[in-house]
């Protein structure tokens, strides 16, 4: 493990990253986000009762995506992390899109 210590010291940007850590995010921010999440949950439950025909799924998924991005950005700190984390996340997101699109190229056009 000592090896990693010395290796890391060769990276100047690491220290910058760690200094970022020194400043914790306020409890208040977390509680606000939590309130928003609870409100969105209530909203999606209520909206599901309204008949929106084909849009039901879309609305439910948009709300779910909003909630997920709140969790990822604030609770999981992606908003405050290095750029590389965002690149990684977009690779994962892109993979998801590829899997769904190409599978549906079959499923949607099948008869």
């Amino acid at each position: 493990m000592e090896s990693q210590e010395t290796n890391v010291q060769t990276y100047s940007h690491d220290h910058a990253a760690e200094s970022k850590h020194a400043e914790p995010i306020g409890y208040g921010t977390y509680i606000l986000v939590w309130l928003a999440l609870i409100a969105l949950t209530a909203l999606t439950a209520v909206v599901s009762g309204v008949n929106l025909a084909a849009f039901t799924v879309v609305v439910a998924l948009v709300i779910a995506l909003t909630k997920a991005s709140l969790v990822v950005n604030i609770f999981m700190h992606i908003k405050f992390e290095d750029f590389i984390f965002k690149i990684f996340l977009s690779i994962a997101g892109f993979t998801l899109i590829v899997i769904f699109t190409l599978t549906f190229a079959d499923v949607y056009f099948r008869r």
């Binding site: 990693q4 690491d14 992390e81 984390f85 994962a92």
Partner: peptide, 27 residues
């Protein structure tokens, strides 16, 4: 590892990669 400098970024990077695998499992 009680040294002051640990590879915090590396640990988080590794964890995020693991989370992607979980995400794709559910995908």
């Amino acid at each position: 590892d009680v040294h002051k400098h640990r590879d915090v970024q590396g640990a988080k990077l590794g964890m995020w990669l693991f989370l992607f695998t979980e995400l794709l499992l559910f995908a």
